[in-house]
Design a protein around this nucleic acid. Structure first.
Length: 302
DNA sequence: TGCCAGGAAGCCG
DNA sequence: CGGCTTCATGGC
């Protein structure tokens, strides 16, 4: 191996309301996760910036994340892209003070927020990844969803070996747009999910579907409507993508089974709450439904 | 072993 | 618009 003598890094400032450990718990939730690896409190992840493969090692230091470049110093644009990726990944742009102010008086959220202070909505900066993962996870258990993602990534993603371990990028929309349905069904994706994913990849590859279209100041209702118009994206997926990729703290995947189970356990209910009951609980969460949901999900894997 | 899983489309009235 | 059916297969 060629020794990396020109070690370099960038810093990404973190707010006070930030807990690296809480974010790590989330990133560690599946043993099948192959888009990052965590060892010794360092997150290692491969990023594809316009064809430039950048392997980053993220650690936490005083009031910042240190983003180290492990496979050589990237271009200036690559360094900037890596910093922006981390910024979006940990949702560092959101000021959580008002959320915590609201949650302090909320009977459901108060204990969870206290226990997991500093947890951020861990996101998907890449729109194609967010949409493809949402579709993959529809109606199947998370363990199986991770199995499917692992097969998908290892068939069509780019990879790089570093210190004996292999790191992957999520497949690009350009590559997936050229696939046939029969390329993916052997992985045990359903035919319909493959149609959805390839269809979305094709629209993105043609430039008809871009993240900036949804982050240019449109209100949440408009964005949700535009997303739901896309085949394969229903209300749950639209709100999931808005929450995890587009930065809407008001996004609310209210039909989510995990959310229902979290509320059931949290409130010690006999059965899962109805949508109407959830709407009632959520009246207090206005503007922060995404964070309420993410913290409730967190409460499921203590 | 049968019900459940981080749903959505398509059809019908 | 609201309800019902189909898809599809692993996990536990």
């Amino acid at each position: 191996m060629i020794p990396n003598t020109n070690s370099s890094y960038v810093r990404v400032p973190t707010p006070v309301e930030f807990s690296f450990d809480e974010c790590l718990v989330f990133l560690n939730r599946s043993l099948q996760e192959n888009l990052h690896r965590i060892q010794n409190d360092q997150i290692i992840k491969l990023i594809d910036h316009q064809g430039e493969l950048i392997l980053i090692g993220v650690t936490h230091a005083e009031q910042h994340l240190r983003v180290e470049f492990l496979n050589g110093k990237p271009s200036e644009a690559g360094q900037r892209a890596a910093a922006e990726y981390v910024w979006a990944w940990f949702d560092l742009k959101t000021d959580l003070v008002p959320f915590y102010g609201m949650a302090a008086d909320d009977p459901i959220l108060q204990p969870i927020v206290k226990r997991h202070f500093g947890l951020r909505v861990m996101g998907f900066p890449d729109l194609f990844e967010a949409m493809a993962w949402a579709i993959t996870g529809q109606q199947i258990n998370l363990t199986f969803a991770y199995t499917l993602k692992k097969r998908f990534v290892e068939a069509y993603g780019k990879s790089l070996v570093y210190e004996g371990e292999i790191y992957w990028t999520f497949p690009s929309c350009e590559e997936i747009s050229e696939l046939k349905v029969s390329d993916l069904t052997p992985m045990q994706y359903s035919v319909r999910k493959v149609e959805y994913i390839i269809g979305i990849a094709a629209e993105m590859a043609k430039g008809n579907l871009v993240k900036e279209n949804f982050t240019d100041g449109k209100d949440a209702q408009t964005v949700e409507k535009e997303l739901v118009a896309i085949r394969g994206i229903g209300p749950w997926s639209a709100n999931y993508v808005m929450m995890k990729c587009l930065g809407f703290t008001s996004a609310f995947p209210i039909a989510d089974v995990g959310l229902h189970n979290a509320l059931k356990y949290q409130l010690e209910l006999e059965k899962k709450p109805s949508i109407a009951e959830i709407e009632s609980y959520a009246e207090n969460w206005k503007g922060w439904e995404a964070y309420a949901t993410f913290y409730l999900w967190r409460s499921l894997y203590e």
